[in-house]
């Protein structure tokens, strides 16, 4: 049976009931007990915030954009990604993963979105993007002013089997590194390797 109290009264009663332990607050001299009370109330507040998030997720689920077929949101994100690429100073299309839980989950599960690996975002990013791209053909891009170092070339070589393009700027050191790298797998789908000439190249 539905609760007949209004929403405000219901939640106020619930909060009073859960926070009843605050009716008898220990004296300030009992530091340990005070600490326990704080821990308890923080636990209650965290649980309330979780419930609030859950309620907001339920609200989001009825929004028209959340009711689109599962194929459409990834398509919108992919088109958005084409126009809002990652930059050194801006996350570009990745901002969609910060909008809400549903968008985040859809974006993370859309392997094609993660195919453009912007190497200068750092190792953690490169690793995460490669994991999310799964076996999708990927594009490694060092950016127009990026100097590629030996550790940055490592992921390219490890993921050569599904690397579609490599675009490296810099002083040619990276190409020298690639030349001398022990190849772990054939570059079956590599279409482009854009890079400056290695130093001392004839």
């Amino acid at each position: 049976m539905a609760d007949e109290r209004g929403a405000e009264a219901y939640w106020e009663d619930a909060a009073r009931s859960r926070l009843g332990f605050l009716d008898t607050v220990p004296p300030l001299t009992q530091a340990e007990r005070i600490k326990d009370v704080y821990e308890r109330i923080d636990t209650e507040l965290a649980a309330m915030l979780n419930a609030l998030s859950l309620s907001k997720s339920r609200r989001n689920a009825i929004a028209p954009v959340s009711r689109l077929s599962p194929e459409i949101l990834p398509l919108i994100f992919e088109l958005h990604a084409l126009e809002a690429p990652l930059r050194k100073d801006h996350l570009g299309w990745i901002e969609v993963t910060h909008v809400c839980r549903h968008w985040r989950s859809i974006a993370i599960d859309t392997a094609a979105l993660w195919r453009n690996i912007f190497m200068h975002l750092g190792d953690e990013w490169v690793g995460t993007m490669l994991a999310r791209a799964k076996a999708t053909p990927v594009v490694f891009d060092s950016g127009w002013d990026g100097i590629v170092t030996r550790p940055m070339v490592g992921p390219i070589m490890e993921h050569l089997f599904h690397t579609h393009e490599v675009s490296i700027q810099g002083d040619g050191q990276a190409v020298a590194i690639i030349h001398n790298w022990p190849f772990l797998s054939p570059a079956k789908c590599l279409r482009w390797l854009r890079a400056p000439t290695p130093p001392n190249h004839p």
Binding site: A46, L49, N50, S53, L54, K56, S57, R59, N60, A63, P64, V65, S66, L91, I94, E95, V96, T97, H98, V99, C100, R101, H102, W103, R104, A107, I108, E124, W125, T128, M129
Partner: peptide
Amino acid sequence: MREILGVENDFTPEEEHSPSSKCTG
């Protein structure tokens, strides 16, 4: 974006501040 498409921020503060959310999208 939330306002344009009518959705709310439903992340918990914990999710919002977790390294996996902010550092790696």
